[in-house]
Design a protein around this nucleic acid. Structure first.
Lengths: 123, 123
DNA sequence: ATCTATAGTTTACATCTGTAGCCTCAATTT
DNA sequence: AAATTGAGGCTACAGATGTAAACTATAGAT
């Protein structure tokens, strides 16, 4: 697959909008991001960077450019997840959940059960 | 707790060594990171940045400075995890799980069960 | 005593990220 | 028509990050 460049946290938020409504115009993206606190300029920059990185495709239309995701949502999430797991939990889902379980309201038995299922899930 | 500055991916690898062997000397850190491909200079820079960020404490000793983590391992992992979940899964462990379970060997019932436990675990 | 490897400190430098302004052209409003 | 607003493209600029060299002070090797 296309060795996609890494997507920054801010860019990700923009991408999410396009995953939700592919083909949005820049104005629609801006509307969806009202409340983000970003200036219109910032939003344009983020969109431009995503296009440059190949994560979005811009297509001309009578209403202006329409933007489409070029990367798959689930796959992108999986990539991010994998990277995160490597980074923080040495790639182990078990370690992740064992950490999450600490401070949760699960009983000892439930925790045991959860971990058992996780083990079954992992390769 | 001190609102600790964010720790970069490279810095994290250094921190892990100190979590494993608190009080290590710079040379021991370097040894632990042979194989990382980093130059000694780079390693020194990373350690210095961690000290500056308050994630490590340097303590003089007859053998040279010994470095100690000033941030808790589990807590740091939890912070990173929380941030990751917000970023990618809208803060939902459930959503993360639903992504992870795709392509796993769990049966439908097991998946259900896991899901139940996860729901119980979340706030 | 001298040389050398290591530790400690400072500086460097390109890229990425967050955040935005400026300029121009076209459409819409007054 | 003049003024305002939005789209597109280019430029900016500081802080974070990856990666490391340079310089200095030392302590151990010869």
């Amino acid at each position: 697959m296309e060795s996609s460049k890494s997507i920054s946290e801010s860019e990700w938020k923009v991408l999410e909008i396009l995953w939700d409504k592919p083909g949005s115009l820049i104005g629609e993206i801006r509307d969806a991001l009202s409340g983000s606190g970003w200036s219109y300029s910032t939003i344009k920059t983020l969109v431009a960077r995503l296009v440059k990185k190949g994560a979005l495709r811009a297509e001309d239309s009578p209403q202006g450019k329409r933007y489409y995701p070029e990367v798959d949502e689930d796959e992108s999430r999986r990539d991010e997840t994998k990277h995160f797991l490597e980074r923080i939990y040495n790639g182990s889902v078990r370690m992740l959940f064992s950490n999450l379980v600490k401070g949760s309201k699960l009983s000892e038995e439930e925790a045991e059960e959860l971990m058992g299922l996780i083990d079954k899930m992992e390769d």
